[in-house]
Design a protein around this nucleic acid. Sequence first.
RNA 1: GGCGCUAUGGUGCAAUGGUUAGCACGCGGCCCUUUCAAGGCCGAAAUACGGGUUCGACUCCCGUUAGCGCUACCA
Length: 486
Amino acid sequence: MSPDSKPRVRFAPSPTGYLHVGGARTALFNWLFARREGGTFILRIEDTDVERNRPELVEGILQGLRWLGVEWDEGPCFQSQRLDSYRAAAQNLLKSGAAFPCFCAAVQYAGADAVDASDAESAKDARNAPCPCRHLDPQQREQKIRDGSPYAIRFAAPREGVTHFEDAVFGPREVQNAEIEDFVILRSSGLPTYQLGAVVDDMAMGITHVIRGADHLSNTPKQVLLYHALGSAPPIFAHVPLILGPDRTRLSKRHGATSVSLYAEEGFLPEAFRNFLALLGWSPGSDDEFLRTSELISRFALSGVSRTNGVFDRAKLEWFNSQYLQQLPIEELLPFVKAELQRSGLWQNSCDGPDREWFARTVDLLRPRTRLLPDFSHWARAFFSDNFDYDSEARAKFWKDPKVPDLLAKLAGTLDALPSWDHDSCDHALRALAESAGVKAGLLINATRVAIVGRAVAPPLFDTMVVLGKSRVIARLRRAVPLATA
RNA sequence: GGCGCUAUGGUGCAAUGGUUAGCACGCGGCCCUUUCAAGGCCGAAAUACGGGUUCGACUCCCGUUAGCGCUACCA
């Protein structure tokens, strides 16, 4: 790469499932790198496996990326629309002798367990046996092709020597070519395998850095061989460690939520999710953790990427979310709360107009106790609607005292007579009432909270009263009297 | 089985070959307090094991063990 050329990177998911956490992090690293270096981030859909391919899943992957805020500069392009390139490349390799046609029957992968469980020796032999088609003489080859025998195209891997490449994370790598089998590059169906498709496209797209999961580390020498055979210098590779579940096995559906869209639905903030994901397998080199996306970008470097697989820690993710919920400038948070309230049917348009200030103040009051966006419409429901229920545990605990109904009724009257409605006025009025009634202020405070918001969990009472407004508080107190009596 | 990668508290990350091995999540305690959070303070908790190299090793080398990956006409 010449000094003035900007890096070009890509994220290349295959539409065989949703956008999972591991893929999302790979995408994020690519994106952060591109943004940091002023490069280009390309999205490519690797849909060459007709069997597993689910075209309808592509949109979900795109949505997941958009939610994550990982915007691509080019694409998405589909490998299924570039089949000619792969076939041409395969033909070139055939002509140059770097590849050969294989007429063997395709063997379906039975799974690692099946192989290991069967007779170890024969399985071993089968695995190591080189494809005999490599040594077919030209006449036999021609004959078979003329006969119309279906064939795949295999790369003729060198039997000696070593292949090396540079990995920005794992350092310089060297592999014995003897360990590399004659892998298939074009299936008998005419569709390319991953190895060929990826290399041909990365070459065509001018990819300078291949940032992908470490599960590809072992296969990289094959691709390096392809680059050379195709007459191109390989890019710089950067393999990022895998994400594991709590049991330290590769994260999968078994571990529960692995789809990015699920986290979006649960009410995580995309920026919090990004922050969390970025720090899973990467470190800025210091102890800083709360890093807004702009800082992530300015500090990202491949040299900070770890070589150790990491466990996905949901608790930490939630902590990041709560941090963003309470530390974001309020104006940045409001749109997310609005969307949440719209989702739950609690949104009032006035909050975008005359009540905007009230809305901001209320959200600000609520947010230290929220962990996920839906908290705003669940336990904080009473702040946005008169239609809320009364938590039975809260009632049992704070409406237990028989004096409560009478106190609530009296409080409604006292508050109603208040000339001004502010924190201190409410405070004094309530404490005075408690004192004259001979009860502790706490008793009345707790009972009142349940009466006006329906539950034990809420911001400080007098702040809550101010935000709810005089008429609502009084109405709710009166409404609660018979309920507290029952 | 073969080949490869990795190894710091339960988890995620720090530590030019020299620190009482640091930070954060989680956990426990205390403070604050009107509930619940948030916040503040304190605490328990780690260099996988064994050999080397070195004045000195979390750091470099070897071995062991463990985990993971690849070993498909999957990606």
